[in-house]
């Protein structure tokens, strides 16, 4: 029971962090057809910016400034990079962001060094929030949860209750029609790209000190965010939300399961000390999202809640 509750809490925290990353990516992907390979690089930039800004102003200012800065960089990338490549098709756009991910990683290595940086949790949140069954639950995770949910609500209100959100939603499915109605679609694209990157930056600000801030964090996070977007389905923020939580819970629970293949398949004659029998479920946790990705693409290419195939 204890493990279960903590796993659920951790899984939801991680899942919401994933959603913060994948919501931006889904918006960008659905609207522009660009699977942004550099999305996790903006997440990394968020963490590094927060470290540098935070050193001067403290964490709370950085929490606002860093995502805005990342968002502006994202908008600039769209305006002067991606828009130019757009005419050469989606593969060229994908490759552009692929090269951008390379570039950002190298620049980060030059500016902040190759090792991880001491980006710490602010002292105010560096303690237990509550105690369950004698185990402390860190306050910072509760804070992450709060930020994620605030962001979720804000995004929901923006998309559903404002005029701008209405146009963005329309551009998700019918970009050409929105253009015909006289809206500046390239500007919408730039804004959405900027907002998406800003959200990734925010995820970096609150995720960088929870996980680890080093130049390989983008490489570690990037593929998982793709998995979330593909499983969730194209054009579906709700799908991305469900998929984020699913992946978050799946990974957290797999790590918590203390079983090997022998325990599962021993009845079929699998030896305890054979190579296959010794594989533990927890060691498979990093692989599970990709297994899910391949299965989903084979069985249901539109994803859980996608409204169209890509």
């Amino acid at each position: 029971m204890e493990t279960f509750v903590f796993s659920v809490l951790n899984g939801v925290t991680y899942g919401l962090l994933l959603f913060m990353l994948s919501s931006g990516l889904t918006l960008i992907f659905s609207m522009m057809g660009v699977l942004n390979f550099a999305h996790a690089s903006f997440y990394m930039l968020g963490a590094y910016f927060a470290f540098t800004i935070g050193a001067a102003t403290g964490f709370w200012v950085a929490l606002f400034l860093a995502p805005v800065l990342v968002g502006l960089i994202g908008a600039a990338v769209e305006r002067w990079g991606l828009r130019k490549v757009h005419t050469n098709g989606h593969v060229a756009e994908l490759l552009f962001t692929f090269g951008l991910a390379y570039l950002i990683e190298e620049i980060v290595k030059i500016v902040w060094g190759k090792l991880s940086i001491p980006y710490k949790i602010p002292p105010l949140l560096d303690g237990p929030a509550f105690t369950l069954w004698g185990t402390d639950y860190p306050a910072y995770r509760v804070f992450m949860l709060a930020v994620s949910i605030t962001m979720l609500v804000a995004l929901f209100l923006l998309l559903k209750k404002t005029r701008a959100g209405l146009i963005i939603q329309a551009a998700l499915t019918h970009p050409a029609m929105v253009g015909h109605l006289g809206h500046n679609v390239p500007k919408i694209f730039m804004t959405v790209f900027g907002i998406g990157c800003g959200l990734a930056g925010l995820a970096g600000v609150i995720g960088g000190n929870y996980l680890v801030t080093d130049p390989s964090m983008a490489y570690a996070m990037g593929p998982i965010v793709f998995v979330v977007v593909v499983i969730g389905g194209m054009g579906s923020l709700a799908g991305a939300f469900v998929a984020s939580l699913l992946i978050g819970l799946l990974q957290t629970f797999a790590v918590a399961v203390d079983a090997t293949f022998f325990d599962l398949f021993g009845w079929a004659g699998l030896g305890a000390m054979t190579e296959v029998g010794r594989i533990s479920i927890s060691s498979l946790a990093p692989m599970l999202p990709f297994l899910l990705l391949v299965l989903i693409l084979m069985i249901r290419p539109r994803g859980l809640m996608g409204d169209r195939e890509f």
């Binding site: 699977l35 989606h90 994908l94 593929p223 793709f226 998995v227 593909v230 990093p286 692989m287 990709f290 297994l291 990705l293 391949v294 693409l297 084979m298 290419p301 195939e309 890509f310």
Partner: peptide, 23 residues
């Protein structure tokens, strides 16, 4: 399983399989 679709689904399957095989 990979070659049913071209484009992004193919790219994503190849990415997933590469991660699986490497792990």
């Amino acid at each position: 399983p990979s070659c049913r679709r071209a484009g992004i689904p193919f790219a994503m399957i190849s990415l997933g399989i590469a991660e699986l095989v490497a792990s």
